[in-house]
Design a protein around this nucleic acid. Sequence first.
RNA 1: GUGACCGUAGCUCAGUCGGUUAGAGCGCCAGGUUGUGGCCCUGGAGGUCGGGGGUUCAAUUCCCCUCGGUCACCCCA
Length: 437
Amino acid sequence: MKKTFRNITGTFDILPEKYRADGTEIASSAAWQAVEAVIREVMARFHAQEIRTPILEPTELIARGVGLLTDIVSKEMFAFERGDTHYVLRPELTAPVMRAYLQHHLDQRGGVQKLYYIGPCFRAERPQKGRYRQFHQFGGEVIGSEDPRADAEVIAMMTAVYRAFGLTEMTLRLNTLGDEGSRPRYREALQAYFRPYAADLSETSRRRLETNPLRILDTKDERERRLLAEAPRLIEYVDEESRAHYETLKGLLGDLGIPFLEDPFLVRGLDYYTRTAFELESPHLGAQSALGGGGRYDLLARELGSKKPVPAVGFAAGIERLFMALAAQGVTMPEAAPPPDVFLVALGDEAARWAFAEAQRLRDEGLRTALDLRGRSMKAQMREANRQGAPFTLIVGKDELERRQAVVKEMASGEQSEVPFEDLIRILRDKIAAGAS
RNA sequence: GUGACCGUAGCUCAGUCGGUUAGAGCGCCAGGUUGUGGCCCUGGAGGUCGGGGGUUCAAUUCCCCUCGGUCACCCCA
């Protein structure tokens, strides 16, 4: 049996046409381009500017930035080493963006930095619906402001993308995690509350009770949820300033007409969040219900070695999940790249030679031009032109070569006319423009 | 990492209660038109029935293992 290769588990190819990979539909490259174009356009409306960072980052950056005890770092990293350098395929982009911000002293550009990104991320999880090992995120970061308006702006950026696609069926959940001081206080209160019930907790929750008790808040276990009903509330341990920040943010979201649901149990899986935390949920995604999420991460810069505090807030969202929401709500994207403007059909070697060179001239003039590359019959060439959806074919044989004119055929009507070689570009342009209008 | 379900042509799927050359539709290629596509007709290519082992006179069909896929737990995008 000959060895064949296939893509790595949890990754997928994006092809010119959409296809089904056992259940899940993978959108066409044209659809991906269209989706990315909308994202870029919306980001531009906020005057967010793109940042691109390497896919490879030092492991230490992610470990410190995201947090050693998080699932992402403790069990989901694609990491390796060469010599004494430790590399990781980035599992998210907030830490890399902050790294770049600090490294390049982007604060020296002046003002608040509003950055956005689109690109692949990697996590070594077992794949399932809406969850891949190589997946694609877009996100935005507002760095350099502690004002609640920055938080509101980030949420506005995220929701604007979904609105631009016409998506409506989703819920924004909102919470505040408090500042540096409130989390340890709440943490202790939570531990004190749960310790007597330790025997009733699941194995993971028991472990988390000591390592990362806040994560118990979003458990799905029924018994634990009942216990949570009586548990101390995070908001009661949140400091005054954070509470005021939260209240202002809620007011701002109201002003923007962005609906939200307060969720006192919302905590996020990354350690760097303080104060604001939010998540956008869709009912259409199966078990992976989050379209995106984010929050404020005022502590990250310091964790990454900055001497000055750098207040920042951002969001990250999954493009695969955006596609699922689009499909669920019947929003259609372009399925395929646009067809060629003209297809050159040649009969005989002489004509084929002329056509090959003519294609180059047409392309230089900006016309999308296709032609046969296999020396096939005229019938086959016409079939190919039809399949590709070319509105015009240009037919040349021995006669035409001698008379220095080509037959231009309009495929929809079947009408043909003879056009002198020197007029081809002008005539084709006119016809294409007429067809396009 | 754990569990459930699934694996027959490029795609969507029939089929074999174990038995001669495994089928359809779509797609692909070609012919019907000596220089003309779409519709139609005809023909063709393409499958070691995911892989390995076992039971059997005989396995695509039964059993075991394995690989791959999907979904769920977990976690998040």
